[in-house]
Amino acid sequence: MSNMEHGDAAAATLRGYRKVQNAARQTLDEIVRFIEPGVSEIDLMHKCDELQRAAGVDSYWYRALPALVLAGEHTCLAISREAYVPDSARLRSNDVLTIDLNPAISGYCGDLARTYFIEDGQVRRAPRSDGEFIAGAHAQASLHALLQRVARPDLRFDELYGILKEAADRLECELLDYLGHSMQADMSALDFIAPNVTHTLGEAGLFTLEPQIRLKGGRYGFKHENIYFFAGTVLHEL
């Protein structure tokens, strides 16, 4: 394959991943209209399915689930180690909610998660009053900002794990689940941001950062997930 053909193929692959990630992003923007006190994890999982299908999603790569919706203290569950069963309990007027999407379109897989905050009955992407909510949102933003500062193509997954774990400790947060993983055609063979994983970020091509964290002594978990990739040596969010 010539350099031009290789470049065309890489651009087409990136377009495929961007298309499915944009469908996920659109869904998590639109779902805000349906989050309110009285709705349940089950309600929102079905609504996420409806919104993703309308955006062109044709399947779900993680356990065939349209969304991992966790509310209240369920936000601390480590789904990678536990079966996911959406709950019928209703959201309260002061509550926290995480939604993690894993859509696919024509074999290209996306991955996106956000935290939503309900304060005095109003859903917000950024909290304004609850101290634990504010601290959790700040910690998430800090970890993603740290990735932007330290990431380079030759950085290994286990090295990134050490950097992020140290930062989480400084932020007085505990890690509830894995920190992120590679994105690829075969999603059953992922590299994780974890100890002893020596592949580099550049070798992965596309990878996620999705720290699920809880403030030490806190009640709730917080998650924010993006897919990242390098253009040369510059890191970009997909």
Rank of each mutant, 00 (worst) to 15 (best):
Pro127Leu: 12
Ser142Pro: 00
Val20Tyr: 09
Leu70His: 06
Asp29Met: 11
Val197Arg: 13
His74Ile: 00
Glu119Arg: 05
Thr27Ile: 06
Leu147Val: 13
Ile99Asp: 05
Ala204Trp: 04
Tyr84Trp: 11
Asp111Asn: 12
Asp154Arg: 09
Ala204Phe: 03
Ala185Met: 07
Val39His: 04
His74Tyr: 04
Ala141Trp: 11
Ala64Ile: 02
Tyr178Lys: 04
Tyr60Ile: 07
Pro37Ser: 04
Val123Pro: 00
Thr75Met: 06
Val150Tyr: 00
Val197Gln: 14
Ala83Tyr: 10
Asp186Lys: 07
Leu77Tyr: 07
Arg114Met: 07
Leu112Lys: 05
Leu146Gln: 07
Gln148Tyr: 13
Ala204His: 00
Val39Asp: 04
Glu172Ile: 02
Arg18Met: 15
Asp177Ala: 13
Leu164His: 03
Lys216Ser: 01
Ala64Lys: 13
Ser40Asp: 03
Asp177Thr: 05
Asn3His: 12
Tyr116His: 07
Phe230Pro: 05
Leu14Cys: 10
Arg214Ile: 05
Leu175Tyr: 07
Leu97Gly: 02
Asp169Gln: 11
Thr98Arg: 02
Leu206Phe: 14
Thr233Ile: 11
Leu215Trp: 04
Leu201Ala: 11
Met1Leu: 09
Arg15Val: 12
Gly131Asn: 11
Asn102Gly: 14
Phe207Asn: 02
Arg214Asn: 05
Ile163Leu: 12
Gln122Val: 15
Asn226Trp: 08
Lys216Tyr: 02
Gly221Lys: 01
Phe207Asp: 00
Leu28Arg: 06
Ile105Leu: 13
Ile163Thr: 07
Ala9Thr: 07
Arg214Lys: 15
Phe157His: 01
His74Phe: 00
Ile227His: 09
Arg33Lys: 14
Gly136Trp: 00
Ser59Gln: 06
Leu51Lys: 00
Pro211Thr: 07
Val234Phe: 12
Pro153Met: 09
Glu210Gly: 14
Gln148Phe: 14
Phe34His: 13
Ala151Met: 10
Asp87Asn: 14
Glu225Met: 08
Gln122Ile: 15
Tyr108Met: 06
Val69Ser: 03
Leu112Val: 08
Asp158Leu: 02
Glu166Met: 07
Val234Pro: 03
Asp158Ala: 09
Glu203Phe: 12
Ala145His: 03
Leu65Val: 12
Arg152Gly: 08
Leu238Ala: 13
Asp154Gln: 13
Leu70Asp: 01
Pro127Phe: 10
Tyr84Ser: 01
